[in-house]
Amino acid sequence: MQLIARAVGHRYGALEVLAGIDIEVREGETLALIGPSGCGKSTLLGILGGMIEASAGSVELRGVPPAGCLNPLTYVFQDFALLPWRSVADNVALGLEHHAIGRRERKERIEAVLALTGLGDFADAYPRQLSGGMRQRVGIARAIAVRPAVLLMDEPLSALDAQTRELLQEELTAIWARERTTTVYVTHNLTEALHLADRVAVLSRRPGRLKQILEVPIPREERASPAHAPMLAQLHAALWDQIRVEAAAADREVADAG
């Protein structure tokens, strides 16, 4: 489905964090949101999914939800947000409870997403027994089990070490190749954005405004190949140009505030 934000603005008290955001997430695409820290990326993601009430503007979901969709706007969280008292399978089940699906379909969906995320052997494990990467796989499995219309990912890999992040990027690429779920992906990592996104939206520093949307003209599955490295490096440089000054300014701002 399409997700369309019109003139979205947000303030926390006197602090304006977002201003005049017009953005259209296209059906089936992965849109990365990047910007300097404190620019309101996560706030925007919260507004897009209805978890934060915008101070201005509106958000609209358009189109037909995918078959079997139980929760159109579904998040994957930076801190995983797993229930420590539930096993892996039961954590995935949470999103399926309180919906009109039968016991058998619930079980099938859980088995399918656990297999898809490589968690098949860990169905009965508890979160504390898992590594960070495995925990986020549970978070991803829980999200795709509900067959979302739009997947909202809030820095999903930033709590992980570099190697695990790389692995999960590959796995996300594979999942999107199969499911083509419309996704909004917040990250502060330009490389991650360029590896995963069809388009990269750049926000300015606070109050965050949409500065630019950059198209990544390489098929996602081929981006790991060395042949495309020069072009990705170019795009990276272009994005960094956009953000560098803003990030430096934001950095000083935070330092002054402290």
Partner: peptide, 21 residues
């Protein structure tokens, strides 16, 4: 709080959030 917000984001009803979270 993040667990409560997670459950809300999955459409879990308030009474179930009390019982389950």
């Amino acid at each position: 709080r993040n667990l409560i917000r997670m459950a809300q984001s999955f459409g879990t009803p308030a009474s179930a959030i009390v019982w389950k979270i």
